[in-house]
Nucleic acid binder design. Structure first.
Lengths: 125, 125
DNA sequence: CGGAGTGTATTATGCATATAATACACTCAA
DNA sequence: TTGAGTGTATTATATGCATAATACACTCCG
């Protein structure tokens, strides 16, 4: 069963997007595998104290992105091949790195300055 | 006069927040100095093809954050001391680095893996 | 003086997101 | 069989953001 107990929802980003991202991160880390079950919509909504419709929207999006399947009323299940796994890994890691570098360059930070900053702050986080 | 000609507005984040961030980046880089003028609300709105009320909201926020002053109808001007400058620098650089490291750790990336990724992607961006 | 350009404000509308409250058909275990 | 739990859907309401369309008082230059 996919774990949502430690998902930290923030206000700014749409909740259903954050839910999808949370599952993708589990997949990228290897914490979640193809075949694992997701909680029922109502159950997850109750646990996170959000609306069932919001969970439904997240599950729907994951179906459309091709790594979740839902059949009848038996609940939703992760389902992805190695190709999709690689896509998700690329999206999360490279996307994140690219955004970071883009921000650093916008602040006119050099490569060395940037690496030094990461080195300085790494253990604080 | 603060330059907004190359600000790239995206859809997801509120426009008025992006405008504030753009000015803060200029300040952090040293491209913008205390005393520099901002375009009039209507002028900037026309240039960026957004609503004057949205610009007004951004200017208002910058006044509240303490680095912009507006007197009468003579236009808005940057106004900050070295302490505020340091605050803005810290907010942008350390904040950005912290977010990045937080993301990397969420994906279970090691320090070395993270540095390697940044090194690999740096020139692509 | 008069008008153009200021900052400021108000009201209305549209859109995306989230919630609330239902409703329906289905499955499955007690 | 019956009822609880499923996925799915619909309608209404609220909020934040952005836009549109005005309006008012002020300054400053021609």
């Amino acid at each position: 069963m996919i774990d949502f107990s430690n998902v930290a929802l923030n206000i700014r980003e749409p909740v259903y997007i954050q839910l999808v991202l949370h599952v993708k991160k589990q997949i990228a880390k290897g914490t979640a595998s193809s075949g694992d079950s997701l909680p029922s919509r109502r159950e997850l909504a109750a646990m996170l104290e959000i609306n069932p419709n919001t969970v439904q929207k997240a599950y729907r999006l994951m179906e459309q992105e091709g790594f979740v399947v839902t059949e009848g009323n038996t609940g939703s299940v992760l389902n992805f091949d190695s190709h999709t796994l690689n896509l998700i890994r690329e999206e999360l890691t490279k996307g994140m790195v690219r955004d970071f570098i883009s921000n650093a360059k916008e602040l006119n930070l050099s490569f060395k300055q940037t690496i030094d900053l990461v080195s300085d702050v790494w253990d604080e986080v």
